[in-house]
């Protein structure tokens, strides 16, 4: 074993070199974000172009995604006022789903959402929307009062409870929303990297160890399918929680 030891993948593997010149604005993830937007627009434009009563296969695919978001996430969670928010939820869902699935598509193989900036920016949108909706509906004073001072508690205990409630709505909710998506994508990609790099390393070492590299590559392929499931699930959960926060903002009382 005179070779240098195995170098495990770490967070430096998530930092890419700039593509054009030295500007860090255009790296692989940024390029993939633009590509995903183009992909979504093209796909749904084509699928809705020749809308017919008897849908073609492409139209059916587009409509089933839309129907899923509209009914399962919008209507079931938000309730009667869901129609206003369907485009917003649909945009979030398709955007997150496409960018997550880049993690297992060959030659891209990097989930864009494993760079913290992208989940954070989507979360900022959700955050602004649900607070705006609540303040517009209830007014700032009533919103804060309903949030921090729930009925049925002895007065002095509010000193302890109110800051925690406030912090939950204004800090922890968006934080967990962004961290959950980021963490899942980051850990999943790291896991795939570990098994692939490990297999490659074992393939280069002694003959006996070579057999185990098959195991490692097999594990990487199996985990890729597992990751695909997780990526779809995370897109769903992200959209679902966004809908739930909007529903909570619209609800009259707790």
């Amino acid at each position: 074993m005179a070779q240098p030891g195995f170098v495990p993948p770490d967070s430096n593997d998530f930092i890419f070199k700039p593509i054009f010149g030295s500007s860090i604005f255009m790296t692989k993830p940024a390029l993939m974000i633009f590509f995903s937007v183009i992909l979504i627009v093209v796909f749904f434009t084509i699928s809705a172009r020749k809308a017919a009563v008897v849908p073609s296969r492409l139209q059916f695919a587009g409509e089933s995604v839309y129907g899923f978001v509209r009914t399962t996430i919008g209507q079931d969670v938000i309730g009667p006022e869901f129609e206003r928010f369907t485009p917003f939820l649909f945009a979030i869902f398709t955007f997150v789903l496409t960018n997550n699935l880049f993690g297992v598509i060959p030659f891209m193989q990097f989930p864009t959402m494993s760079r913290i900036g992208f989940p954070v920016s989507i979360t900022i949108f959700v955050y602004l929307v649900y607070h705006y909706v609540a303040i517009k509906k209830k007014g700032l004073g009533r919103y804060l009062k309903e949030m921090c001072f729930m009925p049925g508690v002895p007065k002095p205990i509010y000193i302890i409870l109110a800051p925690v409630e406030f912090l939950t709505y204004f800090a922890v909710r968006p934080l967990t929303l962004a961290m959950r998506l980021f963490g899942n994508m980051f850990a999943g990609h790291l896991l795939l990297l570990l098994f692939t790099l490990g297999g490659e390393y074992m393939l280069k070492s002694a003959l006996f160890v070579k057999f185990f590299s098959v195991l490692s590559f097999g594990m990487a392929i199996g985990l890729s399918f597992f990751e695909m499931g997780i990526e779809c699930l995370q897109a769903y959960i992200f959209t679902l929680l966004a809908a739930l926060y909007i529903a909570g903002a619209l609800a009259d009382e707790h």
């Binding site: 399962t72 996430i73 079931d76 969670v77 800051p163 939950t168 800090a171 967990t176 959960i237 679902l240």
Partner: peptide, 23 residues
């Protein structure tokens, strides 16, 4: 099932907020 899902995350958010703030 969807309201259940929301409740889990709300529970975790409350625990983190309480512990984080007073801790």
């Amino acid at each position: 099932a969807t309201t259940d899902d929301g409740a889990f995350w709300t529970i975790i958010a409350y625990l983190i907020a309480g512990l984080g703030f007073w801790g």
